[in-house]
Design a protein around this nucleic acid. Structure first.
Lengths: 174, 174
DNA sequence: TTGTATGTTTAGTAAATACTAAACGAAATA
DNA sequence: TATTTCGTTTAGTATTTACTAAACATACAA
């Protein structure tokens, strides 16, 4: 039984939608990326609307956040008022861009609040068993977050080596 | 101005709730982990209820998923029918456990669907420009997912070295 | 100027999710 | 057996979030 290409594309789009949802993004975002990713040519907003079944409004806002994350690129053609969109194919670049974007995100604000807890504990120090306990715990968590952060940055910096090469290197370390 | 310890704890709990929410978990889960993490002693379900302000039902289900992820541990005391909970403090162990749990998750099902797209394309091969284009793209994405997966596994395997040491090693690689 | 083609914003709806309240079950104790 | 003490399940509610439909803004064209 022969599946048609459009059917295969549809399945793929469905898959990416799921993945998007899993990471806490709207599934529409996954779908938009998928149709761009599978298109040999840049697509206009209306073409995306047509292929995803979403409305203009939804595509307009979601494509913008995708662009901010560096996962799609907006371009124009001379003598054509439409915007055209293409998918980023260098995923490492995309990851780097997402991590940068992340700096100003809700997540980092929250992580900073852990740091603030720590300084609050230091500032109002009380020689007390529980106080000490809490301090140690908060500090450990803070260090963990820092470690993850530096690890991510280190991996990103090595992007030029290729992710799989980095993996190979790590594999022999032990 | 001196902040009281309970106030600091509250702020910390608030912070972890945000982080939890950011990663797509209920904010209650973050709160539960926080109160356990800051408690020198194991807490019963009702004590968690009291400190988080959630209901027994919510705590019951959420503490269970935390346990499944390896972020908290359930224990009992002899001659006491209550369950007691403590927070995992070895975050590397927790990450490993979460990644294992992930194997059966919705995420992996979705990632597998990319692989399936690939085999569908191979199975119904048509010598056609677009077909070829789509195939290359899907393949590239699949390889990227694989790379991320092996990298994660490699890092996890090195957990014994300590995360910050791994980071240091990566830093000199370039 | 008016009309047309585009993208954006907004106000409201639908759908998903976290959470509550309360019934239930099970196990120990009286 | 009845009662108490715990955890779980369930049915419903509230909240959040994604999305739609339509008004709006802008720029160009006639």
């Amino acid at each position: 039984m022969t599946e048609t290409l459009t059917q295969i594309k549809k399945d793929f789009t469905e898959g990416l939608s799921q993945i998007s949802r899993f990471w806490g993004f709207p599934k529409g975002m996954g779908a938009i990326f998928a149709v761009l990713y599978l298109s040999p040519t840049a697509l206009s907003l209306d073409e995306i609307v047509e292929r995803t079944g979403l409305t203009k409004g939804a595509v307009s806002t979601e494509v913008r956040t995708l662009a901010r994350m560096g996962l799609v690129h907006r371009s124009t053609k001379l003598g054509d008022r439409k915007d055209y969109y293409t998918a980023e194919t260098d995923f490492y670049a995309a990851i780097r861009s997402i991590l940068q974007e992340r700096q100003n995100s809700e997540f980092d604000r929250a992580v900073r609040s852990v740091k603030e807890t720590l300084t609050a504990l230091e500032a109002n120090w009380v020689e007390d068993e529980e106080w000490n306990f809490v301090y140690e715990r908060v500090k450990a968590l803070q260090e963990f977050f820092d470690a993850i952060d530096s690890l991510a940055k280190a991996v990103i910096r090595l992007e030029s080596l290729g992710l799989s090469n980095v993996t190979k290197i790590l594999s022999v370390l032990k």
